[in-house]
Amino acid sequence: MSLEPQPLFLRIYRNHHLRYIVFGLIFASLPYLSNWGFIRVSLLTTVASIIIYAIAALGLNLLLGYSGLVSLGTAGFMGLGAYIGGYLINEWSASVWIAILVALLIPTLVGILVGLVSLRIAGIYLAIATLCVSEILLKTFAELESFTGGMRGLTIRFPVILGVQMNRELMFMFVVIALIIMMMLTHNLVSGQFGRAMHAMRGSESAARAMGINLFKYRLIVFAISTAYAGLAGMLYVLYIRSSYPTTWDIMLSLNLVAIIIIGGLRSIYGTVIGAFVVFGMSDLVLRRLPIIGDMAGIPYVITGVLIVVMILFYPNGIRYIPQDIKKLIRKITKRGVQNV
């Protein structure tokens, strides 16, 4: 390590937070591209929903990546956030910030309750408990018509944020900013004391316990965090898509979110976003355009499911690590070449 000041571009390159901002600027340029006619407006909606799902997956990645616990209720918690936020904006004409705060808090509280009961016993109970909760929530969304609009769904209009009337492009920016903030937050979270504790738990639960880490406490915290992310993602969904139907929040969405993490890479922040593009972009951007395959109803599910199985069996690190592995492979080949000479 040299103590000489590094060139500016290297400093930017090495600074994680600046990298996230640059990453966000790429997304932020999309509305302009669509205004100038380079890309279609429908693509913007697809990308926005992918970003929203990526935010929910970021939270789930903390849970699955660091504690190995699976939540099958992410979609349910997202729906809860979406309906609470939409209801507050519609019926109480609450400001967006208050709606976001409540849409974050209530799913988190429900998550803490679920975690308190299920995490006490063993890891697998959380998966079953969250599956149960998501079924109850789904039924409630469909039946509690005064609150959710039932099967007719709930619709809102673009709100006013910071005195500015939102429209499609501005809302897209809002979603991108939320993604960047959540990526930075996740980065700070896993780099700090909390992250070290989680890393220790992942290495060996017994060793972590011996070092004085309260497994139950940290599991509960990480599960609560993941539900908070889900609540926020649900809120952003209803803000951008402006409607919410019970069928959106079924178990398949939760499974897709798990798939994002497995495909993108466990414990990887960029991997989560890439995974979201693979899972949700695949069906909207690629498969629907293809002949024959595009008409088959279940094909995205089949491909995603097969990808989950194949990734776990043969490439458990996720596609985030493909560049590193290629580098390693090249180094190996060149080294062998040198030795042969």
């Binding site: 190995g68 699976v70 099958l72 697998i124 998966a127 178990i251 398949m252 499974l255 897709n256 798990v258 798939a259 497995i262 088959m296 109803a297 279940g298 094909i299 995205p300 599910y301 089949v302 491909i303 995603t304 499911g305 097969v306 990808l307 989950i308 199985v309 776990i312 069996l313 458990p316």
Partner: peptide, 23 residues
Amino acid sequence: ASVDGRKIITLGLIMVFIGLAPM
């Protein structure tokens, strides 16, 4: 060793069969 992995694999199988049935 990968008990977690197998649990997730069965989640993948859900998607495979739910997709295959209507096809």
